Simulated scan of single mutants.
Amino acid sequence: MSTVALPARRAPDTQAVVLMVALCAIWGFQQVAIKSANASVPPVLQAGVRSAIAALLVWGWTRARGVPLFRADGTLAAGLLAGGLFAAEFVCIFVGLTMTSATRMAVFLYTAPCFTALGLHWFAPGERMRRTQWLGISVAFAGMALAFADGFSHRGPAADTHAMLVGLAGDALGVLGGVAWAATTVVVRSSTLAHVSASKALFYQLAVSAVVLLALAAGIGQIGQLELRAITPLAVMSLGYQAVVVAFVSYLTWFWLLTRYMASRLSVFSFLTPLFGVTFGVLLLGESFSSRFLAAALLVLAGIALVNAPAKRRV
């Protein structure tokens, strides 16, 4: 297999910082876009269409640049696994957002960096965790436990038990989405996919997930539930945002940054994404949260920051 020499990765400069903040805002807004479209497009079908559109865009992009996607290189098995996990992640996100708020989903989903660190510790050579990272995971998990406790109590003693359980199920799907996201990252980092172009790794995830999600949507009757007359302009714009801006432009930009800047320094910005997600949920959807959930979110953010903190250099 031929390899391409990449420039030495460096610390983020002003351009990288601006791009990373923009990416975190884009990813944080994603939950709002999904929830806005869920009212007129069934969630699993919506996720499948999103992946299909983005996969076609990546295919066109790679074709225009002469990057081969279908050359046999021994990555098929890993690509199918990564695509399946990617599909599972978005089933959890899209279905979960029909049960819980975008604000809560943003916090639970973005525990993913902590699960990623655990997965790489176990499955990727040279990715052993430091004491600071173990502390970060403990802090984040404490925040997650506090957030679940808030889900049991924030509606008060007279709460509708069914509504409370539905909300907690949505929260749990957010965590499972984070686990699936982390598992996808571990597969990409520790398998043959680590040696292919970023475009091909992304195409595997989008194309396989499109097939899986559309087949699942058909199997559970969501395609038949779709009413074209009920699709609002907001739903169309939300779906376009997810497919073009998030799944195509932002993911390719992220992979481009990884080829030029140190991944450990870029990952520090990940704590901004749930912060943006909570802010957009409150401002645009009118969602609210309790002081206990705010404390839980701050613990999760602190844990993410500790997990991504750079190692101290020994003198």
Rank of each mutant, 00 (worst) to 15 (best):
G240D: 07
A182Q: 02
V212D: 03
V175F: 02
G240H: 00
L252M: 09
T259P: 01
L202R: 04
L234H: 03
V249Y: 05
L202Y: 05
I231G: 09
H162V: 15
A210S: 14
F255Q: 11
A201P: 03
L206Q: 08
L214A: 07
A182C: 12
G224T: 04
V175R: 02
T185H: 00
V212H: 00
V211K: 03
M164P: 04
Y204T: 10
L234S: 09
F248D: 00
S191Q: 06
M262P: 08
V246D: 03
G221M: 02
V236H: 00
L239D: 07
V187C: 13
G224I: 10
T184D: 08
A180P: 02
Q225A: 15
L239N: 00
S238C: 11
L216R: 04
A201C: 02
Q205K: 08
S250G: 11
A207F: 13
Q222S: 10
S197A: 10
F248C: 11
V208P: 03
S191K: 08
D171G: 09
A218Q: 11
T192D: 13
G219C: 13
M262D: 14
L228R: 00
D160V: 09
L234A: 14
V179K: 01
S209I: 13
V187H: 01
A182W: 08
L234W: 08
A215Q: 08
L226S: 06
L206M: 11
A182P: 05
G240Q: 04
G178R: 07
Y241I: 12
L213H: 01
A182L: 11
G221S: 05
F203M: 12
D171T: 00
G224Y: 06
L206N: 02
V186P: 03
S250A: 15
I220Q: 09
L228Q: 03
T259C: 08
G174V: 14
Y241F: 15
I220W: 06
M237C: 11
A169C: 13
L252H: 04
V196M: 11
L239F: 07
L258S: 10
S199L: 12
F203V: 13
V246S: 12
A182I: 04
V186K: 03
L206G: 06
T184L: 13
G167H: 07
A180F: 12
R229H: 10
V245F: 03
V188I: 15
G167W: 02
L228T: 00
V249M: 08
A198T: 05
G178I: 10
V166Q: 03
A183Y: 06
L165W: 06
V187W: 03
Q242V: 10
F255D: 12
F203L: 15
Q222T: 10
S197Q: 09
V245K: 04
D160T: 05
S209M: 13
A207G: 05
D171S: 09
R229P: 01
Q205P: 00
A243R: 04
A230G: 01
A183S: 13
L202E: 06
W181A: 09
K200L: 15
V208Q: 01
G240C: 12
S238M: 07
D160N: 14
L257S: 01
L206C: 04
R189T: 11
W254D: 05
A207E: 06
V179M: 08
G219T: 08
I223N: 01
G170Q: 00
V186H: 00
S250N: 06
S209L: 14
G174C: 07
A172N: 01
V244F: 08
S190I: 15
Y204I: 12
Y251R: 04
R260V: 13
V244S: 00
G167F: 05
T161W: 12
